[in-house]
Amino acid sequence: MPAKIAVRDVSKSFPSDKGQLHVVDRVSFEVGDGELVAIVGPSGCGKTTLMNIVAGFDRPDQGSVSTDGVLRTEPSSRGILISQHGSVFPWLTVQQNLMFGLNGYAHDDKEALADHYTAMVGLKGFEASYPHELSGGMLKRAELARALVVKPEILYMDEPFSALDALMNLRMRNELLRVLTEEHHTVLLITHDVEEAIHLADRILVMSTRPGRIQASFDVPMAHPRKLSSSQVQELREAILRELGVDID
């Protein structure tokens, strides 16, 4: 069976004042069906560029991306991108945002489906609210619900919770883990937060500074719910930080 996501030898450069800026360099990895893989790396290492390519928004200069063995050249609702700054439409209510994704879908009761996911992320009662009436955490929940409502096979999450405060960040991680126990999704997560990666992922890929390469891979064997203060988590965290070149002694 082909991997859910297969990234093969992907490279990308951008023109700049100083000539070509080599951002992603021969990156290859696979994500299995239902797996949650996190990519961690320093800021500016090309993580977001890589994510845009994997999600189909951008083309690699070299290499390829396939999902289920099919070459991916453009985005599709089978894989929804959730990014740091969010993209919930501010001019639509929460419910209208969810219904937006269902526009081309043949479903008997789209409203009921939207309501189901609104409730799932804990936004029941806020269906008619506009985004500017919601807090940052609620906005993230709305975005998650809008992604889930189209039943995507893959969630591409690019620093999804990094704009939230620490407490809300932790809550949203738990929220995501809860959703993943209820529904089957493959997740590719990009983050600069090693602890977040260990909290959520089955496997962690470490990216180097620009041009970004995958320089190491770590399995996260601990079962959920993970105790972040456990010695196993701390050891893994230290190993990843060392890989990232952070002096922890």
Partner: peptide, 12 residues
């Protein structure tokens, strides 16, 4: 980001 979201959901 809004245009991308629309593209992602594949709307007409």
């Amino acid at each position: 980001r809004y245009l991308r979201a629309a593209e992602n959901f594949g709307v007409s």
